[in-house]
Each structure stands twice: as structure tokens, then as C-alpha cells.
Amino acid sequence: MGFEINRFQGDVDEELICPICSAVLEDPLQAPECEHVFCKACITQWISRQPTCPVDRQNLTSAQLTQVPRILRNLLARLTISCDNAQYGCTRVLNLDTLSTHLEECEHNPKRPVLCEQGCALVIPKDELKDHNCIKELRSLITKQQQKMNEYQHEFHELRFFILEQRREMQLLKDFMRALKTSNPSMRAIADAMDRDAQDREVVRWSNSLQRARVTRWGGMISTPDDALQRMIKRTLTEMGCPIHILDDLMENCHECRWPPGLCSLETRQNNRRQYENYVCKRVPGKQAVLVLHCDNQHMGEDMMVEPGLVMIFAHGVE
């Protein structure tokens, strides 16, 4: 729907009139071949009823509509029009292209949002200001809020009930599983395997959280650490968040008596020195020690690795 023609100063050329609404073109678009021009809103509405040009009935779809030439846009922009709020006292007459900017800030817009200065500080349309009653407005606001609160409370109760219900159901399922586990050996095996999987995943997660270490002098390895040294390392591992189910096994694997065949004597260690560099080692913060976890070192041969991993303590040479 275009701009009413009597809002314009002087005559408006026929070419600037929309053939559908017979007002001055607003957001004009043109048909591709016949180049007939219409307001965007008008032609869109027409095409939604019938996909033809309203002037010559050539086929026409919304997608085919294009922007009008610059000269036409300029001619439209140059027209001078009175403000939409003229009936509310605005006397401004402006170029068509500046109308929208003016309307955003027009003082005479009856719907312009204004701040109530009588105390409630609500933002209200200007034309409602004279009938505005702070107490009434605030009261209705409170009622609305109260309503909302009641709704939330209701929802909250429902959710709580729902959670209790779920919890009860979960307990029931757990009991049911426990009963299955004790009464059926194959179920027990499945449950145990699931537990083991979960534990393995925990170790991998933990390992991924640790920083890599580099051993520069493998000769500094202490193959028979004493109890005090072992306790100290164990404490550090606990602080590092080592999964509880591997902690003891790991600590036992810090002494050559538990090491795999390839490491268990001075002689075999000498023979396998070249393989040391292939170990993926993790740092034990602040200590001259590294963790060589099984999950990180599956590429090593069986005679160089044991489950769940090794702890190697050094006199020096860890970075």
C-alpha cells in the first residue's frame, strides 16, 4: 500500500503511481519483461492470488520481481510528503527518503513510548499517558507477576513429583539388576565386563589429562626403590587423581621384581636399551619419576609392558 497522493506537495507524475493501490509507490518492484512497477506489498498480495502482471496479464512470480531503476528511485526520493502524524500536529514536510527516519523519532507519534514521570517509571505509549494511573498499572503488573509465580510454583511441584517418581523407578531397576546378577551367571559376566570397560575408560581419560614426560638419561633409573620413596610417589599419584582400582597395582610395578621380562634384570635392560625411547611416558609432577601406562603403550612388546602400567623412578634425568 503506497503513500496517499494528497499527502504530497504539488503534482505527482502518473508514472510514480502504483496501478494496484493508486497511491504513490512504496518499496517499488518491477516486472522483468513488461517493466510495470508496483508497491512491493501490493504486487506480493496480487501474485499470491494470481501469478500474472496486473496490467498486461503476462506470467509473473514473486521471484522474478526486481528492483526499479535508480532514476525512478531518485524521483520518488525527491518527492515531498507530509508526516504520517500530521493529524496529531506534526507540521514537518520532508523528502520521501527521509520519512522513515523522521517517523522513528517524530514527537507527535501518538504511540511513541514515553517514561511515566509520576513515579512508576513504566514505559507507555504517549496517547495512553493522560489516562495512565500508576497504582492501577503497578497493581496489574503485580497480579501478572503473581500469576506467573503461581504457574512456576505449580510447574516446580510437578517436576519434583516427576523426579521422585523417576528415582523410585531407578531404584526398582537397580534392584532388578542386582537380582538378575545374583540369579543368572551370564548376566553377572555381562555386568562385570561392563564394570571393567568403565574402569578402562576411566584410566584412558585420566591418562589423557596428564602431561607427557621426556626421560633424557635412562641410566638414572632406580630399579629397586625403597619403601620411603615408594610411599612418596604413591601419595603424589593419589593427588594426581589416579583411579583407585589401578593405584596399588601401579605402585607394585615400580620395582624390578614385578617388571616384565624385558626389564627385570640388569642384563635384559642392557639388551633392550634401544627400545626405551619408544615408551610413551607421563609426568609425575615434582618428582623424578614417570608413568608408563599400558593404555598408552600398546605398541610395545609384551616383554616390555605389563598391566596396568609401570612406574619408573629415576635419580635424575626426567624433564
Partner: peptide, 12 residues
């Protein structure tokens, strides 16, 4: 008459 029915066009 067709133009008063389905052949109507908005520019008429």
C-alpha cells in the same frame, strides 16, 4: 464477462 471473473487484473 471474463474480466469480471477469473480474468480480472488489479490494474483494471
Amino acid at each position: 464477462l471474463d474480466i469480471l471473473k477469473d480474468q480480472w487484473a488489479a490494474a483494471m
